[in-house]
């Protein structure tokens, strides 16, 4: 029983690690203010779930989840390219709300609030994942590969350009680099891995509905990244472990499930507020939030 529970937590940690590291690539490393990341994660989950429900293989589902999320990521950067500050933040939050209301209203495609049940477990090369141990192994491998790729990007010359763009966009342009292109590419990488994380989540939980990708999830993601610290990959990994464990530890007590949900969100919100107030750079953050 406890063993199953630990495996469940470990799987969630792997998924949230990919998700939060990808968010940090946009927010922390490139300074892209976006509150739409959960929507991109949801778009990935829906893409993958719908494709596999239509009979396409899992591998095409997960990859297209990343690609479709990346396309929406580009759309987001492109449409908001002239906005700054509050207005940029609200436009991206508006994007998240629009995505939510499409998911809930386009019942012909998404079944709306009923959600999509029976999403199959991942299958690769004719081998279908059955147990949670196999699932954990699989998401762990995907997480390691994803983080290795993102780590390599932020440490490369391009990563240096991303950080320079965050610090001073005009300064980057004066040195002959196309700041918009840098932001668009960084956002697409970030969105791609958010889509991958969304796909993994859908195929693990096997059920998604629009509420899964709404405000509470935005707070959860912000908590992980801000607790861990902006522009730190290790920070986001630690943040994901910490926040998922702290959030789920309540289940060990014999609380009625009506109380568990709200209590968990209260913990996240309080944690987030405390970090913002008392340790604005989080555990390992290298930069202040813009």
């Amino acid at each position: 029983m406890l063993e199953n529970y630990i495996i469940h937590i470990a799987i969630l940690i792997c998924i949230y690690t990919i998700f939060s590291v990808s968010y940090n690539v946009a927010l922390g490393y490139t300074g892209l203010i976006t509150l739409a990341h959960v929507a991109l994660y949801g778009i990935g989950a829906y893409t993958s779930a719908l494709l596999t429900r239509a009979g396409y293989p899992f591998i095409s589902g997960i990859l297209l989840a990343g690609v479709v999320a990346a396309i929406f990521g580009f759309f987001l950067v492109y449409t908001t390219r002239k906005l700054k500050g509050d207005y940029l933040a609200m436009a991206t939050l508006g994007f998240a709300f629009v995505a939510y209301s499409i998911e809930i209203n386009w019942t012909g495609l998404t079944r709306g609030a009923l959600g999509l049940p029976g999403i199959v477990k991942p299958a690769l090369f004719g081998f279908r994942i059955g147990s949670n141990v196999e699932m954990l192994l699989f998401v762990f491998i995907v997480a390691v590969i994803s983080i290795a790729i993102m780590w390599r990007i932020v440490r490369s010359g391009f990563g240096r350009l991303m950080e320079a763009t965050r610090d001073d966009e005009t300064g980057v342009e004066v040195l002959g680099k196309n700041a918009f292109a840098i932001k668009a590419k960084a956002m697409m990488i970030s969105a791609f891995f958010a889509g991958i994380a969304g796909s993994l989540f859908a195929h693990y939980i096997s059920y998604i509905d629009p509420g899964t990708f709404y405000l509470t999830e935005i707070i959860l993601l912000l908590t992980i990244v801000i607790v861990g610290g902006a522009a730190s990959m290790r920070g986001s990994i630690i943040g994901a472990v910490l926040v998922v464990v702290v959030g789920d530890v309540l289940r060990l007590f014999d609380l009625p499930s009506v109380l568990i949900g709200p209590s968990r969100h209260i913990i996240y919100a309080v944690l987030l507020l405390c970090v913002l107030l008392y340790r604005p750079r989080g555990i390992l953050g290298r930069v202040d939030l813009i």
Binding site: A89, L215, I218, P262, Y268, A269, L272, L273, L276, I290
Partner: peptide, 20 residues
């Protein structure tokens, strides 16, 4: 703190109050 930090704090307050 920047406006984005204040905005994030307001989202946290929103979630906190709602769940209380």
């Amino acid at each position: 703190a920047s406006n984005i930090v204040l905005l994030i704090a307001s989202l946290a307050l929103l979630s906190l109050t709602e769940n209380i």
